[in-house]
Design a protein around this nucleic acid. Structure first.
Lengths: 204, 204
DNA sequence: ACAAACATACCAACTAGTCGGTATGTTGCG
DNA sequence: CGCAACATACCGACTAGTTGGTATGTTTGT
């Protein structure tokens, strides 16, 4: 919250949380787990955060700005054509699948599954984080739609959600199979579909 | 395991588990929660199951055969044409979205997200359950492919996984938004894609 | 000095699993 | 039939360990 950078310990806890929660889930992650992973003591943890839940809310916010930065800084984001940016996004997500499962899966997708009924604030934070990622995608999709398929029957936003659903579902299979092969296949299908929606040549 | 029906208490516990785990997740579900929901005592619980984990493994098996039965008995399954069966499946899944979120979401998708690194046996059970559901779909897709798109570049199995990923991802958004609208939109996109893969007329 | 940051010991609540015991059949046998 | 022997299902108090969170300091930078 302070204008300058986040405090070191605070930051280490938030980063530890993104790792540990993505591997064990929220309920199974103990505060002691987080302290051990972050290399801080429990006193420090509760000095910086009122509770485990408040911490995870901040972890979601931190995750949001972290991933925003990653996608904004990725090479594809500089492409001039919105359709190129969209397919560049898919390629970029495919490359991410070369990392380990806990590294490429989504903190919010994991969190919301087990908290949506029991932790309303966490659910809301995940909803808004995922929706704003979709909104970022939607801007490119809408620009591409106007350029390549202006008469399309679908909305850009619904395509943005579809893309994210394919990714989230792919993460579930990657976890179940401990392997990203299915996810890669899903991205190939998704690309083929988006190519069918946004014809190769601009409409004039 | 006995040839005759499962014991009453046993069955009530397994059914309670599918409800409670889909609502709260595995780690946050206590044995006492399950006993209360099933209307049995803790003594009875541990009489029938060695541990919470062994119980959830049986709950997954029970879920598998229960859902198998639902899809096998659904009207669409009787259609003569495999492509009709496939699209009937999508319609059927869309209808399921009229129920509440905990009712239409998938036990295995929920479970595997939080147990894939910590409970290998649960992960394996979810993998095999989800894969066998995909295999069921794959049979119809392959038959439809041979009939309507014999020269297709894609495999039936990869399409089966794609369908399931869209569904699983849609469940995540339904949880995040407490609303199935996004899931419906995703099913519409999925249908459009499958229609593009399996042209309307048989190839001869 | 003073406050923020950190450390340690601790606690009350909770959790999975245990254990001694009861109730209700079921089976075998004279 | 009558009765013992055994099996299954069930009960709920109890335990050993864990959990989120607190209380009470100590260190560190300014």
């Amino acid at each position: 919250m302070t204008p300058q950078a986040l405090h070191q310990s605070r930051l280490k806890i938030l980063e530890a949380a993104t790792d540990v929660v993505r591997t064990k889930g929220y309920a199974a992650t103990t505060v002691d787990d987080l302290c051990a992973a972050a290399g801080v003591t429990k006193g420090s943890f509760f000095h910086h955060f009122k509770s485990k839940e408040e911490m995870v809310l901040e972890a979601v916010a931190h995750w949001d700005s972290w991933t925003d930065g990653i996608f904004a800084a990725a090479p594809y984001a500089a492409a001039a054509d919105p359709r190129d940016r969209l397919f560049g996004y898919l390629d970029f997500r495919r490359e991410l699948l070369d990392h380990t499962v806990p590294q490429f899966t989504c903190l919010m997708g994991t969190l919301v599954q087990e908290t949506y009924e029991t932790h309303p604030a966490v659910r809301a934070a995940c909803d808004s984080g995922m929706s704003s990622h979709v909104a970022m995608l939607t801007r490119d999709i809408e620009a591409a739609r106007l350029k390549y398929a202006p008469d399309a029957a679908w909305t850009a936003e619904s395509v943005g959600y579809f893309i994210q659903a394919v990714l989230q579902g792919s993460f579930i299979f990657a976890k179940a199979k401990q392997d990203a092969a299915v996810a890669r296949g899903n991205l190939a299908h998704l690309r083929r579909y988006l190519e069918s929606l946004l014809g190769k040549e601009p409409v004039r």
